[in-house]
């Protein structure tokens, strides 16, 4: 898959995994497993980039006697997911055109 496309996809995946409720690193990886095999070293720069872009915020909370970082989606992060949906609707239209059985002529 094209690297730029992949990056946008992975960003959206991570945002989607924290859309319903805040989550933490290992849980995000587990949640995405059915869709994307993501390693720690892949997830980390994504989380940092999303934090810098203010699409998520990080808060530490106590868990079993240690502190764990939880990632919370921001309003801008939710907006990004909406943008992603719109982008992909466009992409879907293009996909339909590409795989059409009956040649490339417009109707």
């Amino acid at each position: 898959m094209d690297i730029q496309m992949k990056r946008g996809l992975l960003d959206a995946c991570v945002l989607a995994s924290i859309r319903g409720a805040p989550s933490y690193g290992y849980q995000i990886i587990k949640d995405l497993k059915p869709y994307v095999e993501m390693s720690e070293s892949t997830l980390y720069p994504i989380l940092r980039r999303l934090e810098t872009a203010k699409l998520l915020t990080v808060r530490s909370a106590e868990h079993n006697g240690r502190l764990r970082k939880y990632y919370h989606i921001t309003p801008q992060g939710l907006q990004r997911l909406e943008t992603f949906k719109t982008d992909w609707n466009e992409l879907l239209a293009i996909y339909q055109y590409i795989v059409r059985e009956d040649g490339g002529h417009a109707e």
């Binding site: 059915p34 869709y35 994307v36 993501m38």
Partner: peptide, 25 residues
């Protein structure tokens, strides 16, 4: 979690260069 040497390479690379990610592999 992985091998420290490989992880370090990934960490030190600029974020633009993503390591290859398999889809459900």
């Amino acid at each position: 979690v992985g091998d420290p040497a490989e992880l370090a390479e990934a960490i030190l690379q600029k974020p633009v260069k993503q390591t290859a990610v398999g889809v459900a592999k």
